[in-house]
């Protein structure tokens, strides 16, 4: 049996996207984190969601748990939130995938639902553990809106390159 290249490309792409999130947030902190709004870059989630639709990944849940744990260890230092949320998002995406045939608009809408859900649940956990006391209204206008807009833009730019890479290497 021929081994497809996605076996190696998927984890590499996942980790590159993961570290790009941190680097971009640092380099463009002036525009990402202002007084009135903040943007959470989630490129690695884009990679995972695209992987559901366009790549034949062998152990998607293993990678989802790994990247979630990495996020908690390396970025926040609070183990747990992403470790739970990323596999959950992956599960929901797979459920939604079974109802649709993938097209640009369908993937976009599912990705936006995923981002909104992840941002909301992550906010809720942080309220619980006392890392923020922001009200829900301010959260929606200050974080959820800009985050959705940024990730939408990232999706539109990266959809075709990632799709062709994944489909090409899945054969």
């Amino acid at each position: 049996m021929r081994i497809s290249k996605i076996r190696y490309y998927y984890p590499i792409g996942l980790f590159v996207a993961f570290f790009l999130d941190g680097s971009l947030s640092e380099k463009f902190a002036g525009s990402f984190f202002t007084n009135t709004m903040s943007i959470e870059s989630r490129l690695f989630l884009l990679w995972i969601v695209m992987g559901v639709f366009f790549a034949k990944v062998e152990h998607p849940y293993f990678w989802a748990f790994t990247i979630g744990l990495m996020f908690d260890l390396f970025y926040t230092g609070v183990i747990g939130p992403f470790f739970m949320l990323i596999p959950l998002i992956l599960y929901l995406t797979k459920m939604m995938y079974s109802f649709f045939t993938p097209s640009f608009i369908v993937v976009l809408l599912i990705y936006l639902i995923d981002i909104a859900l992840l941002t909301l649940l992550f906010y809720w956990i942080n309220v619980l553990i006392g890392f923020t006391s922001l009200s829900l209204t301010n959260f929606i206008s200050g974080t959820l809106g800009p985050t959705l807009a940024y990730n939408l833009a990232a999706f539109v730019i990266l959809y075709l390159p990632i799709k062709s890479l994944m489909e090409g290497s899945s054969r």
Binding site: F19, D21, G22, S23, L24, S25, E26, A29, F33, S38, E40, S41, R42, F74, Y75, T76, G77, V78, F122, Y123, N126, F131, T132, G142, T143
Partner: peptide, 15 residues
Amino acid sequence: YVLARTPSSWQNQLI
């Protein structure tokens, strides 16, 4: 030097 910033609104952290 700064490696990364946590991509999150709730943790104002640098690595």
